[in-house]
């Protein structure tokens, strides 16, 4: 299990087969992928292509049945035990009985930070996601977009260099989504984290990523890995430039190629 100094996630020949009632489902098959430090990697593909499963394997929430994977040069389990990553789920998943600040404090309490440290981190991370002033609110008092921002703050509150995001904006409307995408890029630039981001939106993937992993279903596999040469500084209207559209077209081609065998 050798990993280069720079790589955060290394998957080699990774496979995962679920045994369901009526036969086996090949959620992942022979996935080879490297995520380097500081990259913003998007996973895109139709449902059932294993993009979420891959993220969950990195997070030690699913166990692979073939191949190897390392996170920070260790097994996913060890990485999880060292709290190497923050995970943002599709739903905000805030605890309804905790205020926003107590929700952000949750991982910090579990990881045994001091009261003083927790207070500082709450302040800092809520500022990072523009939720200052909402510390004492309960989740139901916030909009869906704000709740998801709070859940990002929760994942940023402790010192994990890797941020795993599973369709975090999937349930939000497009205007809110654009806004959050812009904020996420700024946040990525400020924190220099490595981000793994699952989406099924082509513009979102191209807008956010330095690397786009195109996946296809049955069996779930990687069909294309696209290195984006867009500048790191990205205003929203970059989405109308020819460079952007060229990458989007390549992603679309990759997605179509993955589907062609069904016709």
């Amino acid at each position: 299990m050798t990993a280069s100094q720079n790589s955060v996630v290394e998957a080699r020949g990774l496979g995962l087969t679920f045994d369901t009632g009526d036969g086996q489902v090949h959620a992942l098959s022979n996935v080879n992928l490297t995520i380097n430090k500081g990259e913003f990697v998007s996973f895109i593909g139709p449902s059932g292509c294993g993009k979420t499963t891959f993220l969950r394997v990195i997070a030690d929430l699913e166990q692979p049945t073939a191949g190897t994977i390392t996170v920070n040069g260790r097994s996913p389990r060890e990485a999880r035990e060292q709290r190497a990553y923050g995970y943002v789920f599709q739903a905000a998943g805030l605890f309804p009985w905790r205020t926003i600040e107590r929700n952000v404090a949750l991982p910090l309490e579990i990881m045994g930070y001091s009261k003083e440290e927790i207070g500082q981190r709450i302040h800092r991370t809520l500022e990072l996601v523009n939720l200052t002033g909402f510390e004492k609110k309960y989740p139901w008092q916030l909009s869906g977009g704000m709740q998801q921002r709070a859940s990002i703050a929760r994942a940023l509150a402790f010192d994990a260099d890797l941020l795993l995001m599973d369709e975090p904006f999937g349930a939000l409307d497009e205007i809110v989504r654009d806004h959050l995408n812009e904020q996420l890029l700024k946040l990525w630039a400020r924190t220099e984290k490595t981000i793994g981001f699952v989406t099924h939106s082509i513009p979102e993937a191209v807008y956010l990523s330095t690397k786009i992993v195109v996946m296809s279903p049955r069996p779930g596999r990687v069909t294309d890995v696209i290195e984006s040469d867009l500048p790191r500084e990205r205003p929203l209207d970059i989405r109308e430039t020819p460079e952007f559209l060229a990458i989007a077209a390549r992603v679309r081609d990759g997605l179509r190629a993955g589907h062609s065998y069904e016709d």
Binding site: R80, R83, Y87, L106
Partner: peptide
Amino acid sequence: LHLDLMRTYNASRWQTFWKLRLP
């Protein structure tokens, strides 16, 4: 989702009980 979340924090069973199951 909440149980998975606690797992990503590597929370002990005791912590999961106090902070999630009981409330």
